[in-house]
Nucleic acid binder design. Structure first.
Lengths: 241, 241
DNA sequence: TAGTGGTCTAGACCACAGC
DNA sequence: CTGTGGTCTAGACCACTAG
């Protein structure tokens, strides 16, 4: 069950993306939207706040809400978005190859990254992402078996996240993302078309559930020439000191 | 003039960072905070929403607000934070060298990035960031002179952002950030201690003011071994389809 | 002056957690 | 059952924009 605010967000976001509301034009005023959707001002403002946070609009005191040029920001590649969701947007030839699916006893590195003990079971999944015929990304995932008891190659080939959220009802809440550059490992060289590149861009992700338990650690290893990370950032409260 | 919610945010954030509220413990309930700060529930909730957005707490229905381990996320390196703010956190030897400060006529590239015409004046600032004696980052900034009429080497050596916000009263609102890997240019080689590296990590930033005008384009070029980008991301509305 | 968004209040009903 | 956070409402006052 979605909230009223989320439904209004969905409608307005869709109308911005399909051009019903054009960039640099104004959205209807809060007063108008209240009448249009027959809700209170608080609800409308919640929806508008979400649109602002996601880079759809800019709100201006005394003026109104201006529609931003969504195309310019070619997001969402930011936030927490799974490869399957991204591939829809890219609407190009993308393919996932499951290289490896193992249940392992974690070494020191995995223990520290996943916050598990040496006797806990951990899934290790290695997948190659092929884009337009080239193997560009190597995703290595570690899942705490406490949260994911069962996993198959078929699930990995499709979308692990969909399985986790829809089948296991795990609710992903937030993640800490880190981007660094690293030398290519033998695994990288084996499963990626690296050509002359001797290094990769690594996106490390620690993913947490709603109850704050850490359940996944992922390394997404990219061929550098194809790597791109796009982010829409509002000046946040931290810097408003 | 700060809002009540922002002041409450500041107090709670400070108390989380200094350990008054410990990781994995609970914040006082909304009811308690209402009594403590003598405000309405909406105001308290606004402050708690901001804390959640910035990764300080996790809110759990029926339970309360849990304090997250801020140290684990070693932010803020995310969002829009200037180098001066970052250097405070790094509390290491950091130094800024102003290589170049020029008023130029923009070429095609700068025209497209800054959305200006060929006869508009544009500032070009090139600065090297030295960390622990090594020249690690090359920042190249382009400012539309419409917004920044006057600029000196002294201002660039200190903090351009402080000057823009406090002196010129420009209010930065949001940015589009893009991270890619690029071959090192002659300028990179001249002004950075690249050693054997033949490539750099480039953070491109388009910065917008509150009235949605684009006023700055920046390339921050990093030596790859020292590059790190950390982000705290909540699963956002876009992916909640 | 009229219209806009920004903030704050007071109260209501709900779903969920835990005893 | 009580206490918690999640959502929604109705109304108020303010600051800013623009004619």
């Amino acid at each position: 069950m979605k909230t009223k605010a989320q439904r209004i967000y969905d409608v307005l976001a869709a109308n911005i993306q399909n051009g019903t509301y054009k960039p640099n034009s104004k959205l209807p005023s809060e007063h108008d939207l209240i009448a249009q959707y027959d809700v209170s001002r608080g609800t409308i403002r919640t929806a508008l706040d979400m649109l602002s946070q996601d880079g759809y609009i800019q709100r201006l005191k005394g003026k109104g809400s201006i529609v931003l040029d969504v195309a310019k920001y070619n997001f969402p590649v930011t936030g927490l978005v799974s490869f399957k969701e991204v591939s829809k947007i890219m609407h190009g030839q993308v393919r996932t190859i499951v290289n490896e699916l193992l249940l392992i006893r974690p070494d020191d590195f995995v223990q520290s990254q996943l916050d598990v003990g040496p006797t806990d079971d951990v899934w290790r999944v290695a997948r190659t992402r092929e884009i337009q015929g080239e193997r560009i990304i190597l995703d290595v995932d570690y899942f705490d078996r406490k949260f994911v008891p069962y996993l198959t190659k078929d699930i990995c080939a499709d979308s692990i996240y969909e399985y986790l959220e829809k089948e296991l009802n795990l609710s992903i809440s937030f993640a800490k993302k880190e981007i660094v550059v690293d030398s290519a490992t033998d695994e990288d060289k084996a499963w990626l078309d690296l050509g002359d590149f001797s290094y990769v861009v690594v996106v490390k992700n620690h993913v947490y559930l709603e109850d704050v338990s850490l359940f996944q650690y992922t390394e997404s290893r990219h061929r550098p020439d194809k790597f791109q990370f796009v982010d829409f950032a509002r000046r946040n409260y931290l810097s408003k000191k």
